[in-house]
Lab assay of single mutants.
Amino acid sequence: MQFKLIINGKTLKGEITIEAVDAAEAEKFFKQYANDNGIDGEWTYDDATKTFTVTE
Rank of each mutant, 00 (worst) to 15 (best):
residue 26 A to G: 06
residue 53 T to I: 07
residue 52 F to M: 09
residue 28 K to Y: 14
residue 24 A to H: 15
residue 50 K to G: 11
residue 21 V to G: 04
residue 47 D to I: 13
residue 20 A to F: 11
residue 34 A to Q: 12
residue 24 A to Q: 13
residue 3 F to M: 14
residue 2 Q to H: 04
residue 52 F to W: 07
residue 19 E to W: 09
residue 19 E to D: 12
residue 28 K to T: 15
residue 52 F to Y: 12
residue 3 F to I: 02
residue 53 T to Y: 04
residue 45 Y to Q: 05
residue 41 G to D: 04
residue 12 L to K: 14
residue 9 G to Q: 09
residue 36 D to S: 06
residue 42 E to R: 10
residue 17 T to L: 03
residue 41 G to F: 01
residue 8 N to Y: 13
residue 7 I to G: 07
residue 24 A to D: 13
residue 16 I to N: 02
residue 13 K to R: 06
residue 38 G to C: 02
residue 16 I to G: 03
residue 34 A to L: 11
residue 5 L to M: 10
residue 3 F to L: 12
residue 43 W to N: 00
residue 9 G to W: 05
residue 42 E to F: 05
residue 36 D to T: 12
residue 9 G to A: 09
residue 35 N to C: 02
residue 5 L to W: 04
residue 38 G to I: 03
residue 5 L to S: 00
residue 21 V to F: 08
residue 10 K to C: 02
residue 47 D to K: 10
residue 35 N to H: 13
residue 45 Y to M: 06
residue 40 D to P: 11
residue 22 D to G: 12
residue 17 T to D: 03
residue 38 G to E: 06
residue 45 Y to K: 15
residue 19 E to R: 15
residue 40 D to W: 05
residue 16 I to T: 08
residue 32 Q to R: 03
residue 24 A to N: 10
residue 20 A to T: 10
residue 36 D to V: 05
residue 26 A to Q: 00
residue 9 G to H: 12
residue 49 T to Q: 06
residue 38 G to Q: 09
residue 8 N to W: 05
residue 47 D to S: 14
residue 10 K to Q: 12
residue 33 Y to W: 03
residue 51 T to E: 11
residue 7 I to P: 01
residue 49 T to C: 02
residue 30 F to T: 05
residue 39 I to P: 07
residue 47 D to N: 05
residue 9 G to P: 04
residue 33 Y to D: 06
residue 3 F to C: 01
residue 22 D to Q: 14
residue 46 D to P: 01
residue 14 G to L: 10
residue 43 W to M: 11
residue 12 L to V: 08
residue 29 F to D: 07
residue 9 G to T: 08
residue 29 F to E: 05
residue 15 E to H: 03
residue 21 V to C: 06
residue 51 T to W: 12
residue 23 A to F: 04
residue 53 T to W: 09
residue 40 D to K: 05
residue 28 K to C: 03
residue 17 T to K: 13
residue 49 T to E: 11
residue 52 F to E: 00
residue 38 G to V: 06
residue 19 E to L: 10
residue 40 D to G: 10
residue 17 T to N: 13
residue 54 V to C: 02
residue 1 M to I: 14
residue 26 A to H: 00
residue 5 L to G: 07
residue 49 T to G: 14
residue 55 T to Q: 06
residue 52 F to R: 00
residue 41 G to K: 01
residue 36 D to H: 11
residue 55 T to C: 02
residue 16 I to L: 15
residue 26 A to M: 01
residue 43 W to R: 01
residue 38 G to L: 15
residue 18 I to H: 13
residue 20 A to Y: 11
residue 46 D to W: 07
residue 13 K to A: 13
residue 46 D to A: 13
residue 2 Q to R: 14
residue 28 K to D: 04
residue 43 W to P: 04
residue 43 W to C: 01
residue 21 V to T: 06
residue 27 E to D: 10
residue 5 L to F: 04
residue 2 Q to T: 07
residue 51 T to V: 03
residue 27 E to I: 14
residue 25 E to W: 14
residue 19 E to N: 13
residue 27 E to K: 14
residue 35 N to D: 15
residue 44 T to A: 15
residue 25 E to S: 15
residue 44 T to E: 15
residue 16 I to D: 11
residue 56 E to A: 01
residue 6 I to Q: 14
residue 29 F to W: 10
residue 50 K to S: 12
residue 27 E to A: 11
residue 56 E to P: 01
residue 10 K to R: 11
residue 50 K to I: 10
residue 33 Y to H: 05
residue 24 A to Y: 14
residue 34 A to W: 01
residue 6 I to S: 08
residue 8 N to V: 04
residue 47 D to R: 03
residue 10 K to Y: 15
residue 17 T to C: 02
residue 56 E to D: 07
residue 51 T to C: 03
residue 1 M to T: 08
residue 47 D to H: 10
residue 44 T to W: 03
residue 11 T to P: 13
residue 34 A to S: 04
residue 52 F to D: 00
residue 41 G to C: 01
residue 21 V to I: 05
residue 28 K to H: 08
residue 24 A to I: 10
residue 47 D to Q: 08
residue 50 K to R: 14
residue 39 I to Y: 13
residue 8 N to K: 12
residue 31 K to E: 08
residue 49 T to P: 15
residue 26 A to L: 00
residue 27 E to H: 13
residue 41 G to W: 07
residue 14 G to V: 13
residue 39 I to T: 05
residue 52 F to A: 04
residue 22 D to K: 12
residue 48 A to K: 12
residue 40 D to Q: 02
residue 40 D to M: 09
residue 3 F to V: 02
residue 7 I to K: 01
residue 15 E to S: 03
residue 40 D to S: 06
residue 9 G to K: 12
residue 44 T to D: 11
residue 49 T to V: 12
residue 15 E to R: 02
residue 36 D to K: 11
residue 27 E to T: 11
residue 18 I to F: 09
residue 48 A to L: 07
residue 19 E to F: 10
residue 41 G to E: 01
residue 39 I to V: 15
residue 16 I to R: 09
residue 51 T to I: 15
residue 55 T to K: 12
residue 35 N to L: 13
residue 12 L to S: 07
residue 53 T to A: 07
residue 33 Y to C: 02
residue 47 D to T: 14
residue 5 L to C: 02
residue 26 A to P: 00
residue 14 G to S: 08
residue 3 F to K: 00
residue 31 K to N: 13
residue 46 D to K: 08
residue 39 I to D: 01
residue 27 E to L: 12
residue 13 K to W: 15
residue 23 A to K: 13
residue 7 I to N: 15
residue 30 F to H: 02
residue 30 F to Q: 00
residue 9 G to C: 02
residue 1 M to A: 08
residue 12 L to H: 05
residue 2 Q to D: 14
residue 44 T to G: 09
residue 32 Q to S: 04
residue 34 A to T: 15
residue 55 T to N: 04
residue 42 E to C: 02
residue 53 T to K: 06
residue 4 K to T: 06
residue 4 K to D: 06
residue 51 T to S: 06
residue 11 T to A: 10
residue 21 V to H: 15
residue 39 I to A: 15
residue 15 E to P: 03
residue 53 T to R: 11
residue 2 Q to C: 04
residue 8 N to S: 09
residue 42 E to S: 10
residue 1 M to H: 05
residue 14 G to A: 09
residue 40 D to R: 05
residue 45 Y to T: 09
residue 25 E to Q: 14
residue 50 K to T: 11
residue 42 E to G: 05
residue 30 F to N: 01
residue 39 I to S: 03
residue 11 T to G: 11
residue 4 K to G: 14
residue 16 I to W: 07
residue 23 A to D: 14
residue 1 M to E: 03
residue 6 I to R: 10
residue 8 N to L: 04
residue 56 E to Q: 06
residue 54 V to Y: 01
residue 20 A to P: 03
residue 31 K to Q: 05
residue 12 L to Q: 07
residue 2 Q to A: 10
residue 39 I to R: 01
residue 38 G to Y: 05
